[in-house]
Simulated scan of single mutants.
Amino acid sequence: MTEPLLQVVNLCQHFPAKAGRTVYAVNDISFTIKRGSTVGLVGESGSGKTTAGRSLLRLVEPTSGQIHFDGVDLLALSRKEMNRWRQKMQIIFQDPYSSLNPRMKVSDIIGEALDTCGYPKGEKRAARIEELLMRVGLQPEHATRYPHEFSGGQRQRIGIARAIAVEPDFIVADEPVSALDVSVQAQILNLLSELQQSLGLTLLFIAHDLSVVEYLCDEVIVMYLGRIMEQGPCHEVYRHPRHPYTQALLSAAPVPDPTHKKPRIVLKGDIPSPIDPPSGCVFRTRCQYATEACARELPSAHTLDNGHVVHCLHHALIPSSPR
């Protein structure tokens, strides 16, 4: 059996807050990502998706846990050693406007990434930058322009070119299409899919749009308030969701057929504060199946068929709701 490219074990990310309190942004999550696959990380705002993605790259230092990348424990590396590994791990940011330096030309933005791996300057670098721009659907003459001269979709293409410039093995795509028009979203998704296939990339695709994840990803991880609720192959989780939270998310996802009616599961209340999460199962305050046991016990992972995993005390009693 092939070793996973990324293995995350009991990862926690806590931040200090006022009055000595703590923000529990990510709490004890574990998962693996196979080499060459695309894994979707989904959940509503405040679920800890982006924090988890940034923690994997040590853009924020994790509080505890283990992150093994290609057999190496990243958290055991010094900052200098970690810098050498960053060539293999890159990120595409959500906002294509704020993620590019407005004072730098495109050639300098991409060139800055090439500097990190000691890429030589001169004609060879210029040719590499032109190659990258064309790879993401832009033109060589765009290298001399500034970010404000591009549309949102074009800026995101520049961000993608910067991410693949150092030939990484793994990319965290942090909601890369959420700030774009719907027509442009499809173009960027197709570009990511093509790059993933042609370059052999492994992707962690963070999103809140379930239809996008189903289209692009092989596996999906559903997060809520810093914890994993359900995970497994996309086709299995989407067809037979076993966690009440996943079922509610899928029931809210729009379908292209206006004549198709499906039952809607409406969650009551708002997502609790990560400063004071509920005891036991963090979803219990909004769950229609919650019992007193849910307040006392933290649900463990239950493995179902085909690598489908659900974190719920009452998963056996909850009917699978096919779409």
Rank of each mutant, 00 (worst) to 15 (best):
E3K: 15
E3F: 09
L5G: 02
L6V: 15
Q13M: 13
Q13T: 14
Q13E: 10
F15P: 05
K18C: 07
A19M: 12
V23W: 02
A25M: 00
N27G: 04
S30R: 00
F31E: 03
T32E: 14
G40L: 05
L41K: 06
E44R: 02
S45Q: 11
G46L: 09
L56T: 03
L56D: 01
L57A: 07
E61F: 01
E61D: 15
I67F: 03
H68Q: 13
F69P: 00
D70P: 11
D73Q: 12
D73K: 10
L75V: 09
R79A: 14
N83C: 10
N83W: 01
N83T: 06
R86S: 00
R86Q: 09
Q87I: 11
M89A: 04
I92W: 04
F93Q: 04
Y97C: 04
S99Y: 08
P102I: 05
R103F: 06
M104Y: 09
G111P: 04
L114Q: 01
D115R: 12
D115Q: 11
T116W: 03
C117H: 01
G118Y: 05
P120S: 05
A127H: 11
I129L: 10
E131H: 14
E131R: 14
L132S: 02
L133G: 00
M134H: 11
V136N: 03
E141R: 14
T144Y: 12
R145F: 08
R145V: 03
R145E: 11
E149V: 12
S151V: 11
Q154V: 07
Q154I: 03
R157W: 00
R157D: 03
R157Y: 01
I158G: 06
G159R: 05
R162W: 00
P168M: 03
F170I: 02
I171V: 12
V177C: 06
S178H: 05
L180R: 03
D181C: 07
V182K: 06
Q185G: 08
Q185A: 05
L191A: 08
L191Q: 01
L191E: 06
L191P: 01
E194I: 02
Q196A: 06
Q197N: 14
Q197D: 13
T202E: 07
A207P: 02
S211G: 13
L216H: 05
I221C: 02
M223S: 08
R227E: 15
M229P: 08
Q231M: 15
Q231L: 12
G232D: 06
P233T: 08
V237M: 08
R239F: 11
H240F: 13
P241D: 12
P241G: 09
H243V: 00
Y245D: 00
Q247T: 01
L250M: 12
V255H: 14
V255W: 11
V255A: 13
P256N: 07
P258A: 07
H260S: 12
K262S: 13
R264Y: 13
I265D: 02
L267D: 00
P274W: 04
I275Y: 00
P278Y: 03
S279N: 14
G280P: 09
V282K: 12
A290M: 07
L298R: 13
L298E: 15
P299A: 09
H302Q: 13
H302F: 13
L304Y: 06
V309S: 06
V310A: 07
H311A: 00
S321E: 14
P322R: 08
